[in-house]
Design a protein around this nucleic acid. Structure first.
Lengths: 255, 255
DNA sequence: CTTACGACG
DNA sequence: CGTCGTAAG
């Protein structure tokens, strides 16, 4: 079995204070895709750097901002940081780790909640991401794009669909984009293993005790190639851990 | 008995979190001189504003910076904020409350630890303060200047006099300034009631567990007119409270 | 080490 | 509401 976890850490240093290494010890994923490191590599807490994992980080140029990483028990045979689009790469939003029989991406889509300009860049990111991801469906190896897409797909993925229909992260054009991603052949692994189940979220606002009241959004995904879905045996949102405002989303594959 | 306490709060909001109102309830000073409020009046926590004291604040123009205050059971018959020197008044460093038989000042001298420019301004503050204070010795009423002078007077007032002989706060010219203040007629009430006693400090760095190891400095004073010293019955540093990096310094007078 | 502000989410 | 950088102490 191969367990892949994805976590938006909202600051790897904060996540560390909140028990990141305890989570790793109890959950022991084989591969961990991280988003929002908000730290340079030298700022990653020592106990994390000392974990028995291979570690690769793709950090933002701007300090304390964004950044993705991939930790894995097995050493990747290839790592790629960025996709050749300057602003996306400068913000540390996309990286890849390639293994013998698998390609894994850690993805952190921009948030559009801070205003029109960032919302426009978010849509630009999505437009660039879609064909980029699609290419990998043609690859020899199974592929999975794990991360924080900052979009809820359907009403079932958000606690208050009506109130949020004009909120960035649940806009029609964003939701349609997720549908297009699935139409091109990707699988929303967590949803496919939990069809029709409601109240399953991966992010809760820190405000208004949202997590205790389970007023959340499902915005963290494992978007896999079809053959990988066939191998998926279990998908969980590890809600009991309070490592950040997101919960780890984990999938175990029969590999 | 009239009890006057002085406290550098290092943020009145932080001091509140650390039990400021509990301290007031247990210690119940009649007059409280505060320094380093680091808040505008509207930001002072409600439970403090609701205390059964008259409250007056003289805050800095710069947000989150400096600021002094005086709380008192009795209503002052006169309050003066600032001394007519623009930069000192903009930084909220000196205020007065006048009562029937007493004049009380809350004083927050600049720190010189951040560099030459601030050290120069600290010396300028001291040079302006000395004649200003001296005038009040001629007043009808007894007067006391309470606060954080950011200077240790003598070797007995600091845990490591040798190592700090070139450190701002224990420089020869600063120590001589305190001597001059005393020569003009002011009394260091706490020291006068604890002559020759060592290891009595009012401030400990937050670094290196300084307070548990009592590696401190005595930089908070009650500088009184001579007739007031005669009335002083007890002077204590309330070290058991961890309200900020300073301890409250309290003096009880037979008034 | 700790406070507070401002940017960002 | 929380994290981070920065200024200040």
């Amino acid at each position: 079995m191969l367990k892949i976890s994805s976590l938006n850490a909202n600051g790897i240093r904060a996540a560390h204070r909140h028990g990141f290494t305890d989570w790793i010890e109890e959950s022991h994923p084989d591969i961990i895709c991280l988003q929002e490191l908000r730290a340079m590599e030298h700022q990653v807490p020592d106990p994390i750097q000392e974990l028995d994992y291979h570690k690769a980080y793709h950090t933002a140029e701007k300090k304390g901002y964004s950044g993705v990483g991939i930790l894995s028990k097995e050493e990747p045979i290839n790592i790629e940081k960025g996709i050749g689009v300057a602003w996306i790469d400068q913000e540390g939003r996309i990286m890849m780790a390639e293994y013998e029989n698998l390609i894994v991406f850690s993805i952190y889509a921009p948030s559009g909640t801070t205003g029109d300009e960032r919302q426009k860049l978010k849509m630009e990111f999505l437009d660039i991401f879609l064909p980029f991801a699609q290419k990998y469906l043609a690859s020899e190896k199974p592929v999975v794009f794990c991360g924080d897409f900052n979009i809820c797909h359907k009403a079932i993925d958000i606690h208050n669909p009506k109130r949020n229909k004009n909120t960035s992260g649940f806009l029609p054009e964003e939701r349609e984009w997720v549908s297009r991603l699935l139409q091109t052949g990707f699988e929303d692994v967590y949803r496919r293993l939990h069809e029709g189940e409601s109240d399953l979220y991966s992010w809760w606002s820190y405000r208004a005790a949202s997590k205790e009241r389970n007023k959340g959004w499902r915005i963290d995904y494992h978007m896999s190639s079809p053959e990988l879905l066939e191998l998926a045996e279990e998908a969980t949102i590890e809600r009991a851990w309070d490592l950040s405002d997101h919960a780890p989303v984990s999938v175990s594959y029969a590999i």
